[in-house]
Design a protein around this nucleic acid. Sequence first.
RNA 1: GCGCCUGUAGCUCAGCUGGAUAGAGCAACAGCCUUCUAAGCUGUGGGCCACAGGUUCGACUCCUGUCAGGCGCACCA
Length: 517
Amino acid sequence: MILRSFLREKLTMLLKEIWNIETSIPILYPDQPKFGDYSTSVAMSLAKTLRQKPLDIASTLAEKWEWTDICRLEVVAPGYLNFFVNESLLDTLIQGKCLEDQYGSSDLLEGKKILLEYVSANPTGPLHIGHGRWAALGDSLARLLRYAGAQVWREFYVNDAGNQIRLLRETIQAVREGKEIPENGYHGAYITDVAKQTEDPVTYILNWQKETLKNFGVEFDRYFSEKSLHDSGMVQKTLDFLKSAGVAYESEGALWLRTTDHGDDKDRVLVKSDGEYTYFAVDIAYHQDKIKRGFRHLYNILGADHHGYVKRMEAAVWLLSQADGVETDFRIIIGQLVSLYRNGEPVRMSKRTGDMITLEEVLEEIGRDALRYYMVMRKADTHLEFDIEEAKKQSEENPVFYVQYAHARICGILRNLPSNLPVPQGTIVDSPEARLLATRLLRFPEIVQDAATALEPHRIPQYLEDVASVFHKYYTVHRIITDDLQTTANRATLVKATKNVLALGLRLIGVSAPERM
RNA sequence: GCGCCUGUAGCUCAGCUGGAUAGAGCAACAGCCUUCUAAGCUGUGGGCCACAGGUUCGACUCCUGUCAGGCGCACCA
């Protein structure tokens, strides 16, 4: 049972029944225990439309509230409804739902087939820290969406065709022959290494990227080759389709797409006057392919350095959908850039300088858990300031260890548990601190749903820190293992539920939950 | 010049799609281990939520404008 949904459902019902109105009902987590475990301000927002005092509306709702076996309800001026979860229900949930392997999962997004595209770096150089962020975000998001019931297919679009690739090959060729690197060629230190390989440079670099991502715990269901779109004729097919749909037109020797029909500043070129396809055209073919494969929910994580591309792509997918007669849900998540520092000194991230720090290096230096945590702990659309030395220096007091420590601490307790414990019986939530912890644990499914629907993975670490904090406080005040076996068994259950939530939450962001630290 | 993102404690950032006295972690200071992991806990100080208007019973949250920073504005990818 997801309590918040239950409350919302019943309130919706009552509003319909009493006043015959429908409205969205905000359910909040009050910041003070005396205001309940959940609360709503719906009575205040309805005051105007119902022409009644908020307090009267709240009172009427309270009178009709018949689910006191779930929560009791208080009316507080100027019109809040505060819900207190019933103690025995808390006990039941803690030793039931909260201990389940799949606790927090739901069927909220049941039936949705989502294609999630992320990273999609050019195979012309090693991945940098920014890619690390999109990778961690994408992977976590995939886990979240799946946990919320969606079918998620993860793709990395490999730009293995076009100018950049040609330039890379020319660069490598030149280095191998001891010639000068061509203008606009690649100059990174890694070029020398790549040139030494007998393998094709593109294949080599792509495998290198795959290896890094694998070490980072980031997986894909498919690496989709851009070149394959050319080879199969998909690009041409898509262009013909757009032409026949009347949304592409020729002008000045080029083929254009009417992206201005859907919010873009100017129409965009699909085929250049020299006959070559633009990157845009091929990308449209890729998205047409996604649609043809039956996906209606297309989510892309894009680096902020490419956000200028968003409008035209949205227009393109819209035009495709119109022409295809299908409805698509196309969303672009902009991942802001990561500013990398070392001891306060900015570190260059450019692919061309050769003086960069790669994702691989950062990963080796600070470790997978810490890096993944740092990359998803902030909202995707805020710039991330990341100091390598600080992440290491703080490694004893930084958030990822704080959360992991709570988990390890619980494991320690569980190892010390007497073997002859009875089954939990009677009151489990036996103190204000226990109550605080228990009600936090009940939020887990709600947080997962919020994070999934808002496409905001950062809510998970945020929540986990909250849980860890509440647990640590509980731990310092109460002993779990006591002389009384029944009490021990009961408290151990609460602690196990906490461990379960921490472990599940950490898994959602791809961070390990260690048994010992 | 135009567009997108950001502006909250000294620093890094949350703030639950408009609600109750604005939060956390670092950093500073003062305390707490003969008892399950002190990588923890408790307390103190620190804020005109960039600024100015507006909408609202109610704004950090929504709208407009200004300022500051980041990133983009190709028949590149």
